[in-house]
């Protein structure tokens, strides 16, 4: 049991309350059947009641554990999360191909400690394969870089 258990249950109760408030006005019977808010309202009621009982139970137990199991665990979590957020932030600027290639190469060098040749292979092959599969195969255009929009790069 962690103190975050209480936070989570409380957050679910809060979400349910907000959703009930949002849908209350139209939760009744409209001219052509149940109103727009009927279904979300009762879904929120079920969720809120269940979360309330979970909260009530977890409040009676003394918190003993922290969110992360260990310092190593926390480090592993952040090592994965930070580059991932960076990728999503960078895609609108650098396009999908540059970012995915850079991300693969970065991971191979940083976590895998591979030789530069292998890093380069990772960095090139993945965007190329994705280009062939998505852009050519499925005809799904992926986001391109700022340089592409200025005509300086083909991707």
């Amino acid at each position: 049991m962690t103190r975050y258990e209480n936070v989570t249950a409380a957050a679910l109760v809060l979400i349910a309350a907000v959703a009930m408030g949002d849908s209350l006005k139209t939760a009744g019977w409209a001219a052509n059947g149940p109103g727009a808010g009927f279904y979300p309202f009762w879904s929120a009621v079920a969720m809120g009641l269940a979360a309330l009982v979970v909260l009530g139970r977890s409040l009676r137990v003394k918190p003993t554990r922290e969110l992360f199991g260990s310092a190593e665990g926390a480090a592993a979590f952040w090592k994965l999360t930070v580059p991932m957020v960076a990728v999503v932030l960078l895609v609108p600027w650098l396009g999908f191909y540059l970012v995915s290639g850079g991300y693969m190469a970065f991971f191979g060098r940083w976590i895998g400690r591979y030789r530069w040749l292998w890093v380069a292979v990772m960095g090139f092959s993945v965007p190329l394969a994705l280009y062939l599969l998505f852009e050519q195969g499925f005809k799904v255009p992926l986001p391109k870089s700022v340089l592409y929009r200025q005509g300086l790069l083909p991707f």
Partner: peptide, 8 residues
């Protein structure tokens, strides 16, 4: 609670 959240 998760079913309710999913339906929402």
């Amino acid at each position: 609670a998760m079913i309710g959240l999913g339906l929402l």
